[in-house]
Simulated assay, not measured.
Amino acid sequence: MTKAFGGIRIVDSTHVLAGPFASYQLGVLGAEVIKVESPHSPDQARLQGSDRRMNDRGMGTSFMAQASNKKAIALDLKSEGGRKALLRLLETADVFVQNFRPGALDRLRLSYDDVRALNPRLIYCSISAFGATGPRREETGYDNVIQASSGMMAMTGYGDGQPLKSGAQLVDYGTGFAAAFAISAALFQREKTGVGQHIDVSMFDVALMLCSSHIAGLTWNGSRRRRAAGFASACP
Rank of each mutant, 00 (worst) to 15 (best):
G161T: 08
I183W: 06
T219H: 08
D43I: 01
L122W: 05
R109I: 01
Q197N: 12
C125M: 11
A4D: 04
S166K: 02
M64T: 08
V171F: 03
V195T: 13
T92G: 05
S126H: 11
G58L: 12
M64D: 05
A228H: 12
H40P: 03
S126L: 02
A4W: 08
S79P: 10
M152S: 03
C235V: 13
A104D: 02
Q66C: 10
P135W: 04
D114Q: 10
L29Y: 11
I199H: 01
L208F: 02
E91Q: 12
Q44F: 14
I127A: 01
R9D: 09
L75F: 02
S184E: 12
A65E: 06
Q147Y: 10
D106S: 13
N119P: 07
S62R: 07
E139I: 04
C125P: 02
A178K: 05
A216P: 00
V115M: 03
Y24C: 10
F96Q: 10
D43P: 01
G167Q: 00
N221C: 09
F100L: 00
A207I: 00
M59R: 13
T219A: 13
D43Q: 02
A22P: 03
A74P: 00
I127K: 01
P163I: 10
T219C: 11
D94W: 08
S202I: 00
Q25D: 01
Q197W: 06
T133L: 11
L164W: 14
N69F: 14
G141M: 04
L26C: 12
M1H: 15
T140L: 11
Q147D: 08
A65K: 04
G196S: 03
F21K: 07
R226E: 15
V95A: 03
S166A: 05
Y112H: 12
R227N: 09
V171R: 01
K3M: 08
D12I: 04
Q98V: 02
N144T: 15
S79R: 13
L105V: 07
Q25K: 12
G196T: 06
M153A: 11
A45I: 07
M152V: 02
L118R: 10
A178L: 10
V36S: 01
